[in-house]
Amino acid sequence: MALVTIDNVDMRYGGPTGTLAVSGLNLRIERGEFVAVVGPSGCGKSTLMKLTTGLHIPQAGTVIVADQEVTKPVSIVGMAFQNPTMLPWRTTLENILLPLEIVERHRHRLRAHKAEYVAKAEALLETVGLKGFGDKFPWQLSGGMQQRANLCRALIHEPELLMLDEPFGALDAFTREELWCVIRDLHASQDVTIVLVTHDLRESVFLADKVVVMSARPGRVISEHMVPFERPRQLEILYEPAFNDMVQRLHGEIATARAAA
């Protein structure tokens, strides 16, 4: 059974005459899979995220996450956006612990097991290359470091599903490539399913098992591509002809989808 099944979903904003954001959307995400969603801007990629996490309930069709139909926010997800949204009055470590103060299963044992959770947060910080920065405030960190901390916050409660909405969009090229490797290693080492919404086709091909191309608004899935490259992938792959061919094919498809709009 797939972790996420989106079946023939319509989502319209602003009442019956409002904008149709997605229409006839179908998508299956297997457990442990890394799926990248690409498409022209305004294609409903963010709507897809909100539907999967239960922040929006569709008007038609069903969304099933972990064998349950989504009717309210599902707490097995972690989310990270382009904007790191760290709370400036908390240290980085306290920011990372924030989800534990919310999620039902952790909030009652947080106080008694504080040391255990702090150790876990510190282990995560080390994984993303922020060892020793836990007691710094977010505004003392660079944009790339904040985004690393943001990933830790999304992962601290061990979500089964990690939803990333253009998390590296605001970063410079070098930082972005570094963080690709961080995400790649996280996916390899932890038992987590990742959905990455992105505009960057190289990013999608480098990281994902499956690239999903969406049409212009109203969004639906026009094609799915399995990425054939072996894991673990190194950054050198970015300069191989087969990699660039795939990026180019995707690019062509999206250009066609835009023209059709």
Binding site: T53, L55, P73, S75, V77, F81, L98, I102, E104
Partner: peptide, 9 residues
Amino acid sequence: TEDVLRALG
């Protein structure tokens, strides 16, 4: 920020 927290319940 609100989305992140609401998605956690």
